[in-house]
Amino acid sequence: MTVKPYPLQFQPEMKERIWGGRALEGFGLTLPEGSIGEGWMIGDHPNGTTKVMNGELAGTGLDVIRETYGREWFGSQGFSEKNGRFPLLIKLLDCNDDLSIQVHPTDEYEGLPQGELGKTEMWYILDAKPGAKIIYGLKDGIDRAAMEAAISEGRIMDTLQEVSVEAGDAFYIPAGTVHALCSGVVVAEIQQNSDTTYRLYDYDRPGLDGQLRELHIEDSLNVIAYEGAGAQRMKTDGAAPSEWLTIATSPYFIVEKGIVEAPWQLATSAQSFVILVIAEGQGSLKWAEGELAVKAGECFLLPATLGSYELSGSMTVLRSVVPSS
């Protein structure tokens, strides 16, 4: 069966986390019971594979779409032979409590689980309570020996930088950057398709099973970029209507912010699929074969072969593509 390309919307996979809450209901998402910390909006991973919920391919997993249409629909840069998965993972995060102090490895780390990639990511702050903050990198002068000493002496928090955040802030978090989201923020996360996290510290709190969660001290010490990995942050309120503002650039993704106030004519390219995350507001997504009403909290995968499309309404949109290698 030949299916014409169209914007794909997926049924999110919801993940209970000890630090989660119910804030994702504010986007009209249906949550299972419990403390829901992560909504995997577009995923092709053993720990979460999302299924299409609209159009001809409704009910089809992203893994099957990749196998059937990937070379054509994902673009010349978006189809990877490396581990046979879609290259990105798109999440919405509700941080009702502090996340663990953590770090992610690079693709080259020898300790990676079989089949896994490293994890470079970026955050866009969708909502933040007054006084909200994150952990973002190390204080100056912290090397491996200083970090080891701080861990053994129970003062790891003294080695970390705290940054105040508000809605609209963007953070680029290359692998090797020590980080943690803290309570009171809701975040859109665009990341490499990986689920490998090394925990340095978890506040000595029990997990969902009542047991202390595993720490990964040796792996963490091995992968931390003590001299910095190139982490960058920016305010994005300079975004202008019908213009893309680049808010994160990495070898794995380019993320841009756009403000939609009037009909905006756009197009995909043969190089990469496009992922659209509706960060605020509502409007419509129109292409040659149809139109979808869209609103905050929704995410769409546009095949590289879709061609021309139009955004209209009143909304803030994040656009992600895979860059040239």
Rank of each mutant, 00 (worst) to 15 (best):
S325V: 15
L306N: 02
E289I: 00
P251L: 11
M315H: 03
G184I: 10
K129T: 13
K51M: 13
D94K: 07
G131A: 13
I90R: 05
Y109D: 04
D219Y: 12
L117A: 15
W244K: 05
Q11N: 12
K286W: 05
V178N: 08
P241W: 09
D98N: 11
T68Y: 07
S308R: 12
T106H: 11
G21T: 02
P241I: 05
V321N: 06
T120Q: 05
L181E: 06
S269Q: 13
M234A: 13
A279P: 03
A180R: 01
P303I: 06
G39M: 07
T106P: 01
F253I: 00
F300A: 08
L8P: 02
Y203V: 05
G48A: 15
E81W: 07
K4I: 03
V3Q: 07
V255H: 01
D169I: 08
V274S: 06
L200D: 06
C299M: 11
A58T: 15
D169Q: 13
L29W: 10
A270H: 13
Y172W: 03
Y6K: 01
S272Q: 08
E298H: 06
G230W: 08
E310V: 06
L245P: 04
D195F: 12
A225G: 06
V163D: 03
E116L: 11
G43P: 04
I142T: 01
V317D: 05
K51F: 13
G111P: 04
A225H: 12
V277K: 06
I278R: 04
I156S: 10
W244A: 05
N193S: 14
E67H: 11
K91W: 08
S183R: 15
A167Q: 07
D127W: 10
G297S: 02
I173F: 05
Y69G: 01
L29P: 00
D209L: 12
P105A: 07
L215Q: 07
K4R: 08
A175W: 02
T159E: 14
I275D: 04
E148Q: 13
T50Y: 11
E13K: 14
E110V: 08
G313S: 02
N83R: 13
L160P: 05
I156M: 10
L92P: 03
Y6R: 01
T246N: 10
A128P: 11
L318W: 09
G59K: 13
V322G: 03
Y198T: 00
E121L: 02
R199S: 06
P12V: 10
L306G: 09
R85E: 14
E108A: 10
W123M: 07
F74I: 02
H216F: 06
I151Q: 09
S100H: 02
D158E: 15
A304F: 10
Q161E: 15
V64F: 11
P174Y: 10
Y252R: 01
G84D: 15
A239R: 01
I18N: 12
G307T: 10
I275Q: 03
I18G: 10
F74H: 01
L112K: 05
S314N: 11
L266M: 12
Y6W: 01
G290D: 04
L62S: 05
P5Q: 07
A231V: 00
W264M: 11
S220R: 04
Q77T: 12
T249G: 03
E148A: 08
T68N: 14
W287S: 02
D97V: 00
I173N: 05
E38N: 07
A58G: 13
S269A: 15
Q211I: 00
S314P: 00
T30K: 10
A150Y: 04
Y6A: 02
S242H: 12
G55D: 08
D94Y: 09
T197K: 05
